[in-house]
Amino acid sequence: MTTRLSTAYSPCPNDTFVFHAWAHGLVPGDLAPEVTFADIDVTNGLAERGELDVLKISYAALPYVLDEYALLPCGGALGRGCGPLVLTGPDAPADPAALAGKTVAVPSERSTAYLLFRLWAAQAVPGGLGEIVVLPFHEIMPAVRDGKVDAGLVIHEARFTYQQYGLRSLADMGEAWEAATGLPIPLGAIIARRSLGPERLRGLAEAIRASVAHAWAHPADSREYVLAHAQEMDPAVADQHIALYVNDFTADLGPDGYAAVHGLLDRAAAAGLVPATAPGALDFPGAAAG
């Protein structure tokens, strides 16, 4: 008998590419998703309220939900060279210290992007930031271009399109993170209810890994699904997006992936930005014994 799991992930190309096969019954197993599409800020809130079975959330939100949800070892977004960017207008100073007292637009105060930005700014902007304004990510670049904010923290495909707005990159949060730690950048996590139990969690991880493998082996299968949800994104940009965010860490976090997650959450907790993570809280309950 098939078990239906209430599931939420974003309409971004990396998520639709990864989950297409699972969502369309193309992988083995008796677990199937009932999919809701929502931006990451919404899924973070759904997780904190414990409303769904399986979600894609920001790693920055993970410490707040680990009592109820387990981190899955696959399906998420980590990588190198894929960090958020701080953008400014073409005439703004190139020195990050000039952001002191300035207004910065961010996509969410509970996002990994904002957490990386705060860790970076604590060192790079000794005078302290000014007002932080939360905007939907697609509104940030126009706001910087139009002078409504002094700078913007951008994610996703904005890495490939910000020059079209006449903007420049002041700093790359991923480069700063990698230079400081040598670790990949943890961005988005896949979580599932602990109450599903080890056997179902293991089956869920197997289904997601199979979905990733299918996506890589048969990329044309997911094309219509990806573009249908890509918010009128140029197909070439969608391809760049997938190539950047779907990688070996998507198939399995592995030691480097787990080290990156621990590194981010431990540094953020030490800075008082997130609650401390209890020992063992990131361990996967569905891992095979022995």
Results as ranks from 00 to 15, higher is better:
Val125Thr: 12
Ile155Glu: 10
Lys148Ile: 11
Gly128Phe: 14
Thr161Phe: 11
Glu131Lys: 11
Val125Tyr: 07
Pro126Val: 10
Leu153Met: 06
Gly147Ile: 08
Trp120Glu: 10
Val134Asn: 12
Arg159Phe: 05
Pro126Glu: 02
Val144Phe: 03
Leu119Arg: 11
Arg145Val: 01
His138Val: 01
Val133Glu: 07
Thr161His: 04
Gly147Tyr: 08
His138Asn: 13
Ala158Trp: 12
Arg145Ile: 10
Gly152Arg: 00
Ile132Trp: 06
Glu139Tyr: 05
Leu119Cys: 06
Ala158Arg: 04
Phe160Arg: 06
Ala158Cys: 15
Ala124Cys: 04
His138Cys: 11
Lys148Arg: 15
Gly152Phe: 10
Gly130Pro: 02
Trp120Gly: 00
Gly147Lys: 00
Gly130Thr: 00
Ala121Asp: 04
Phe160Lys: 10
Val133Trp: 06
Gln123Thr: 14
Ile155Leu: 08
Ile155Gln: 09
Ala143Cys: 05
Thr161Ser: 15
Ile155Asn: 05
Leu129Val: 08
Phe137Pro: 07
Pro136Gly: 09
Ile140Glu: 04
Arg159Met: 14
Ala124Val: 05
Ala151Cys: 13
Leu129Phe: 02
Gly152His: 11
Leu153Cys: 04
Gly130Ser: 03
Gly128Glu: 01
Phe137Arg: 09
Ile155Arg: 09
Ala158Gly: 11
Lys148Glu: 15
Ile132His: 08
Pro142Tyr: 00
Val144His: 09
Ala124Pro: 10
Glu157Trp: 15
Tyr162His: 13
Trp120Ser: 00
Asp150Leu: 01
Pro142Cys: 04
Ala122Pro: 00
Phe137Met: 08
Arg145Asp: 11
Phe137His: 15
Phe137Gln: 09
Phe137Tyr: 15
Gly128Pro: 06
Trp120Pro: 02
Pro136His: 03
Pro136Tyr: 13
Leu119Phe: 14
Ala158Pro: 02
Pro142Ile: 09
Phe137Asp: 12
Val134Gly: 03
Met141Lys: 12
Ala143Asn: 13
Arg159Pro: 02
Val149Cys: 09
Ala122Arg: 10
Ala121His: 00
Trp120His: 03
Pro126Asp: 00
Met141Phe: 05
Leu135Arg: 15
Ala143Ser: 04
Ala124Met: 14
Asp146Phe: 07
Leu153Phe: 08
Asp146Val: 06
Leu153Ser: 07
